[in-house]
Design a protein around this nucleic acid. Structure first.
Lengths: 197, 197
DNA sequence: CCGCCTGCCTAGGGGCCCTAGGTTTTTCCT
DNA sequence: AGGAAAAACCTAGGGCCCCTAGGCAGGCGG
């Protein structure tokens, strides 16, 4: 019997593709094996198990998403950067729903594996870089980053869950949300007196 | 053998409790049955299957969350209402992680079942009511509602996924995010010329 | 050329979802 | 109150899934 030539990476990609096509929930050892023309037991040479595979898909997706954002925002600043950043984020979620979902699962990733991934640090740098033009200083910078990430993620998550039912298209609301966030970043409120920093 | 006295509601609650304790993924027919002291096949009298159960948990949770928010915001307006609304939302997510997760799963709920639920309409009313004081008109109102929901949901989702790693506590960022959103609602940007409404 | 690591295999146990059909308990009608 | 009908719970079993154990063969290093 000829060998299938599997590697950890090929198994991960097969799982990620499957996730995009049929949903992350349906990504199963058996299905991935079937797609690769192999018996399910054979995957355990390359991947520790289903949890491990899911973690690897999440890391793969996070890296891809960060790369897309980096490409989209290079050379931009201010509102242009904000819009490019957010749009690249949303489009990645649309184009790769299964992969995107994988990135949002509670952290069960092998710490050692995660440590090898360059994605997270790069993502943080990108986000802070995008905000450079707004003149925020810590701790406002961190708070602004968290607010933006929350909004971007929340929007695409609600969109995917069918949360924006009728009438007005999500696209219009998205555009206006970015207008609003840009305005907000330009008028970031000072701390109320008495409020802890 | 004495009867266990199951009902659809009791099964749903058992599932919801289990979800909060061990995670929605672990909510399984067998586990729910075990918790109720019953064989798994017995549940099918009360619930159509796992999908159906998940949908019912989602509806239960959505109703509970809406109720909490309603109680928290009654009689309040302006920033007080915003903070109470958002905090009730976040606290529900903290106290009932499994239930909350159920509300965010892509829509696979039996439409007939969903139609009977009073939750969604009530939730919409609450949100629009909270914004009344800010003097927004459609379509800005809808866009603002969507932005707020996105941010609230995104924040708790990232928090749950371990997205706010170190250093600054999520609580501080949360407080500041609400400050920022309040400011934003008071200075909602007008449409750029040429931008479609 | 040959041993040997390693990729892929078969075999099998245990868990889960769900259906079919039986039995016992409760309800309700007369 | 008695009995039929309905409903609640059961056992049995098929199919899919995760994962482990152990075997065989293909392609590399000596």
């Amino acid at each position: 019997m000829a060998r299938a030539g599997l590697t950890t990476e090929r198994v991960t990609i097969a799982g990620a593709d499957l996730a995009d096509e049929v949903g992350l929930e349906q990504v199963t050892m058996s299905q991935v094996a079937r797609r690769l023309g192999v018996k399910d037991a054979s995957l355990y040479t390359h991947v520790r198990g289903l949890e491990d595979l899911r973690g690897r898909i999440a890391l793969l997706a996070a890296g891809e998403k960060t790369l897309r954002i980096a490409e989209a925002t290079v050379g931009l600043a201010g509102k242009d950067a904000l819009v490019a950043f957010a749009t690249a984020w949303r489009e990645y979620a649309h184009q790769h729903p299964g992969r995107y979902t994988a990135t949002q699962t509670p952290i069960d990733i092998d710490p050692e594996l995660a440590a090898h991934a360059p994605g997270p640090r790069r993502a943080v740098e990108l986000t802070y870089g995008m905000l450079r033009g707004y003149g925020l200083a810590e701790p406002d910078l961190t708070d602004a980053v968290r607010l933006l990430r929350s909004t971007f993620h929340g929007f695409v998550a609600l969109e995917a869950a069918g949360g924006f039912a009728h009438a007005r298209t999500p696209q219009r609301s998205w555009t206006r949300a970015l207008d609003a966030l840009h305005t907000l970043l330009e008028h970031w409120p000072p701390l109320d007196e008495g409020e802890p920093s």
